[in-house]
Write a protein that binds this DNA or RNA. Structure first.
Length: 409
RNA sequence: GCCGGGGUAGGGUAGUGGUUAUCCUCAGGGAUUGUGGUUCCCUGGACUCGGGUUCAAAUCUCGGCCCCGGCCCCA
């Protein structure tokens, strides 16, 4: 027997239908905000991802060389390809551009709860609206999508400007180190790093900034920054919409990728991998050879959404099982077609089973049995039987279809 | 890459070196050739893989693979 590759999953129909239901809800929410769905290739030139994330990322990706010698990689996330697509194709589209996607992504990582080597990411990108209104819209959209899907989560929103302002005098590599410590809440490491470079004076404002829960508090610590008005306007919009969130100026989210607003969300029922969404403002287009246009977006871990929501409820669709005999086979196919044309999931017996066997099978797999035997074929009727109650009646096909649609009664 | 816990039919399980590996569920068939569900009968299906110890391994041991939890990472 061949096992599936490590970190991959199979989905049976009950779970798959549940996933599709949630996908549809999320797509619809995005659509309502004007975010239209796009699709990019499953694999791209490796360079797209190393440009964005550095050469070290290769060991975390599924990479391969194709028969033409091209160095390719299965996509490890959604944003890079979307911005690549924007640079390639969307220069003439009127802005802002609102796009969303649901992509299968691949990362060579150790699987654990909520983390797989093949996973799905629902993302949205707003390109060319580098404004506080744009930042606010992306956050509100993300919240709408997650709540529509039924997820309960904690939302944390921040902005990189205050922290970068405090760290403005530090050398680039030291700044990265300090921010990495802050990201991991490693305060001992933070103190040691600052002391080592003679900037222990920064420890107090940094820890105070992490505790700040309003823009006013943050600016009283870091002083005035050019982004102040933008941050305040964004917060004002979010508050006007009654959004539940925590302001957190300690959010770092990777190092050089995000340029302004950043946000994260954490859901229940997940283990160590409880981050369900991450996003923020960034400027990637220029890196990929386009103009320097500001963008803002997020990625939702779709599989984590599903884990957080719990087990799939069993499917409830009415199912009709058509029971027949070899002599009435053609009639049975016609009867099944009538039910299918009405949008009813209908399964016709395909095996060499007697009436009793067919009814037995119908009792396990269907809500209704529709008998299309010789007798019915001659009179153009069917015998409709509700399997939960055992009630049955012989009637014309149209009437039987209506009966199933209206739930028998 | 690292640490820990696991792996017995499709699912859930019993089995601390010794007959043909237990039970439930499930699936297929029959009792019942135009009426299922209950019941009864029959059938099918498993020791994760490989090496080692032993007269004898599901059981002890080592390693691989896979699963689960955590670390690292998380674009």
């Amino acid at each position: 027997m061949i096992q599936k590759p490590r970190g991959t999953r199979d989905f049976l129909p009950d779970e798959m239908e549940y996933r599709r239901t949630k996908e549809a809800v999320m797509r619809q929410a995005a659509k309502n905000w004007g975010y239209r769905e796009i699709c990019t290739p499953t694999f791209e030139h490796q360079e797209l991802y190393t440009l964005r994330s550095g050469p070290g990322i290769v060991k975390e990706m599924y990479t391969f060389q194709d028969k033409g010698g091209r160095e390719l990689a299965l996509r490890p996330e959604g944003t890079a390809a979307v911005l690549r697509m924007f640079v390639n194709e969307a220069k003439v589209l009127s802005r802002p551009i609102r796009w969303c996607y649901l992509s299968d992504c691949y990362r060579y990582e150790r699987p654990q709860k909520g983390r797989y080597r093949q996973f799905w990411q629902f993302g949205a990108e707003l390109i060319g609206a580098d404004t506080p209104e744009g930042d606010a819209e992306v956050i509100l959209l993300a919240d709408d999508i997650l709540r529509s899907a039924g997820v309960t989560y904690d939302l944390h929103i921040g902005h990189l400007a205050p922290m970068r302002h405090i760290l403005r005098d530090l050398a680039e590599d030291l700044r990265r180190e300090v921010m990495a410590h802050l990201d991991k809440k490693n305060y001992e490491g933070l103190a040691a790093a600052l002391a080592a470079c003679g900037r222990a004076d920064l420890e107090e404002p940094l820890t105070a900034l992490l505790a700040a829960r309003t823009p006013a508090e943050a600016f009283s610590i870091c002083g005035d920054v050019p982004e102040r008005e933008r941050i305040e306007r964004m917060v004002q919009i979010l508050d006007s919409q009654g959004l539940a969130y925590t302001l957190n100026f300690g959010i770092v989210r990777g190092l050089d990728y995000y340029t302004g607003m950043v946000f994260e969300g954490f859901a229940e029922n997940l283990g160590a991998e409880n981050q369900i969404i991450g996003g923020g403002a960034y400027r990637l287009a220029k890196l990929f050879g386009g103009e320097d246009v500001g963008s803002c977006g997020f990625g939702i871990g779709f599989d984590r959404v599903m884990v957080s929501l719990g087990d799939a409820p069993p499917a409830e669709d009415a199912v009709v099982a058509v029971v027949h005999t070899p002599e009435s086979r053609d009639y049975a196919f016609s009867v099944a077609r009538a039910f299918r044309d009405a949008g009813i999931r209908t399964e016709l017996n395909l095996l060499d089973r007697g009436f009793g066997g067919q009814m037995k099978h119908a009792g396990k797999t269907a809500a209704y049995a529709v008998v299309a035997g010789v007798r019915e074929a001659e009179s153009g009727t069917v015998t409709l039987k509700e399997l939960s109650t055992g009630a049955q009646k012989e009637c014309p096909v149209d009437e039987a279809v209506d009966g199933v649609i209206s739930g028998w009664r």
